[in-house]
Design a protein around this nucleic acid. Structure first.
Length: 359
DNA sequence: AAAGCGGGGCT
DNA sequence: AGCCCAGCTTT
């Protein structure tokens, strides 16, 4: 499809961007490595959340080689709280490949970029347009919302194939001299003006080219159908103390929260089943004394899953060797390990209990 | 094509 | 209580 007003649209959009763009840390550089880091952090994550992580990350890993050589556990610790932890491991895998295969120079073409771990069509386009000033599309949820309104595209954006419609639109509309600014302008517009609900159409620099505004249904776009319903899982969590140390374990290297650390958790078939025996068997320990049964309860909501954690504080003795994934650590040592947020919350409650209890 | 993968902020 | 966020990988 051919779109009218391309020239005026891109001109107005980029001019607005030059006046109103947000001052963001990754906009102080053209270093493709740093752009790459920022784009990976920004996947499914808000700008305000990313900013402090980006700063600390670049301070610790200022060059592509420094990240390639980083210790994975330290890397995960830097990513702690940001979520989608496979992003961190994929980023390091991608960076290593660039160092080995391309002598540390980030590729400047879509084909090579998209073959890197963790780099998909969006991230490749963002690096190419922002760092290398090449006229490549970078279509994310923001861009689909803005363009679905401007161009009145009513295809379902939850379908994979729909993205191609937007990529082709961007190829026509993109500013040939300022491709990076054009792509970022669409994102800033989506964040500041063309918001999911209550878009500020009266402040929009491209209102006069917007079919959604003309039709009066901009806020109803984009069309999105998919909604998966979440699953509940119930666990008994054992805070198991032995001689001033607690039992702690590293999660498997694949799947949810891969390689992150946690207190031992036993999945319950029904919500009230007793898991003490299975716990003792799995970790080869014996519960000597229950200090606090049902110490506290905690719910954690993931995007596709809800954890209900029932935490118990127990004294244990060893029966023999621990399984290889389990270790005894001090609370101080836990601070140095990468933990998912639900475990951080448990550690905080535990610290309060130990150091701030009335007696 | 659909599901898996975190966490937080806004309505 | 949903929805969405500068998405990618695996099945």
């Amino acid at each position: 499809m051919k779109y009218p007003y391309s020239q005026q649209f891109r001109q107005s959009l980029v001019e607005w961007f030059h006046e109103e763009k947000r001052d963001l840390p990754w906009r102080q550089t053209n270093d493709p490595y740093k752009i790459w880091v920022s784009e990976v952090m920004l996947q499914q994550t808000r700008v305000d959340t990313v900013i402090p992580y980006y700063q600390r990350f670049i301070d610790k890993y200022p060059t592509i080689e420094s990240l390639a050589n980083a210790d994975e556990e330290e890397l995960l610790k830097m990513w702690e709280g940001l979520g989608y932890y496979s992003r961190a491991r994929n980023l390091q895998a991608g960076v290593k490949e660039v160092v080995e295969k391309y002598g540390g120079t980030v590729p400047n073409n879509r084909h090579d970029l998209q073959r890197l771990k963790g780099v998909g069509p969006y991230t490749a386009g963002a690096i190419l347009s922002i760092a290398y000033n090449l006229p490549e599309h970078a279509v994310d949820g923001n861009v689909m919302r803005v363009l679905s309104r401007v161009l009145h595209i009513k295809e379902d954006i939850s379908l994979v194939k729909t993205r191609k419609i937007f990529e082709e639109a961007v190829e026509q509309l993109i500013h040939p001299e300022y491709p990076g600014d054009f792509n970022q302008a669409l994102m800033d517009l989506g964040a500041m003006i063309c918001t999911p609900s209550s878009p500020k159409c009266l402040l929009c620099p491209v209102r006069e080219y917007c079919l959604g505004f003309m039709e009066g249904d901009a806020e109803q776009l984009p069309i999105k159908t998919k909604k998966t319903k979440e699953k509940h899982e119930f666990y008994d969590v054992y805070i198991a103390v032995n001689d001033g140390k607690v039992l702690f374990e590293k999660r498997p290297e694949e799947g949810l929260l891969a390689n992150m650390w946690q207190f031992p958790m036993m999945l319950k078939g029904k919500s009230s089943e007793d898991t003490k025996k299975q716990f003792e068997l799995k970790y080869n320990v014996e519960i000597k004394n229950i200090i606090e049964e049902d110490f506290f309860e905690q719910k954690h909501i993931f995007s596709h899953l809800i954890w209900n954690l029932r935490c118990h504080l127990v004294d244990i003795t060893e029966n023999g060797e621990l399984p290889e994934f389990a270790h005894y650590v001090t609370l101080k040592e836990i601070e140095g390990l990468p933990l998912p947020v639900p475990m951080i919350k448990i550690v905080n409650i535990l610290n309060q209990y130990i150091f701030h209890s009335p007696e």
